[in-house]
């Protein structure tokens, strides 16, 4: 049986007064007319409907349980989580994304795949990904905005490797995978040794970007890499006009809602 609505509203009102959270003692003082049973029932209902958040304040014998109201925005994030997962989420949040390995395994079982928590491998390339909460601002995130992705690899680290490979190929003119591997190893970009396949995959992305050519050599069977001979032009006539990059280009008609005569992109382009 659920608690009466009046009791729920009274507790929420008290919680709103104390934005940083209140302990059970404070609640008792603020709501003297409410019996402990009614209060417990109301708190459980609020926890069940993800309107209330539980957290601990203090350590050791001074550790007390506090309640805090959850905003609508926060509540959306807890949607689909069970009570245990909610607590784990709160724990990760409270410790600032440095959860211990014991909690990690359980969290991955329950939390991976959910949009609030993502696995990512840090730059020391340990096999087990660290659980992270996306909306927690981290100092490292500012420096490497693409560091943690769904792809489970470190994009910033890959980009750094790609740039290093590109510079090496440009400097050497014609080089092999072995030479590039030696260069990467000598520069100690990674704490662990990168395999040839990894470096080859990275160089292949440079090939797909149109920055590097793969050429076969008559004298050895190894693939050779050179800077691209026919580079992609820096600009085209088509994309220099608004139509070239217009998102509603396919809907543009002479007498339509979107038309060249009333086009805002043209207006901006022709503003001198």
């Amino acid at each position: 049986m659920s608690a009466p609505k009046a009791a729920l509203d009274a507790i929420v009102e008290v919680l709103r007064k104390h934005k940083k959270g209140v302990s059970d003692d404070v609640l008792q003082k603020e709501l003297p007319q409410m019996t402990p049973q009614d209060r417990a029932k109301a708190i459980n209902d609020l926890l069940g409907s993800k309107r209330l958040q539980l957290f601990h304040v203090g350590t050791g014998s001074k550790r007390t349980m506090h309640y805090k109201e959850i905003t609508a925005e926060e509540a959306a994030k807890y949607k689909g989580l069970g009570p245990e997962e909610t607590l784990l989420y709160q724990q990760i949040k409270s410790v600032g994304n440095t959860v211990d390995a014991g909690g990690r395994g359980r969290l991955l079982l329950g939390g991976k795949g959910w949009r609030g928590v993502r696995g990512s491998s840090p730059s020391d390339h340990t096999p087990l990904p660290h659980p992270r909460i996306l909306d927690i601002t981290q100092p490292c995130k500012a420096a490497h905005p693409q560091k943690y992705t769904e792809n489970q690899f470190d994009a910033a680290f890959i980009d750094a490797l790609r740039d290093a490979c590109m510079q090496f190929i440009q400097r050497k003119g014609n080089t092999t995978l072995r030479e590039i591997g030696e260069f990467i190893a000598s520069k100690k970009f990674a704490k662990v040794d990168l395999r040839d396949e990894d470096i080859h995959s990275i160089i292949q992305t440079l090939v797909y970007d149109g920055r590097v050519d793969t050429v076969a050599d008559e004298f050895d069977e190894e693939d050779h890499f050179t800077p691209i001979m026919h580079p992609v032009p820096p600009a085209t006539a088509f994309t220099s006009i608004p139509c070239g990059v217009c998102p509603v280009f396919s809907e543009c008609r002479d007498d339509g809602v979107v038309s060249p005569a009333t086009c805002e992109y043209f207006d901006k382009w022709l503003e001198f």
């Binding site: 149109g210 026919h230 992609v232 032009p233 820096p234 085209t236 994309t239 070239g244 990059v245």
Partner: peptide, 14 residues
Amino acid sequence: QLKLKELEAVARDR
């Protein structure tokens, strides 16, 4: 080859 490069440039710009 010229056509391909132009198309690649358009793909990059878009």
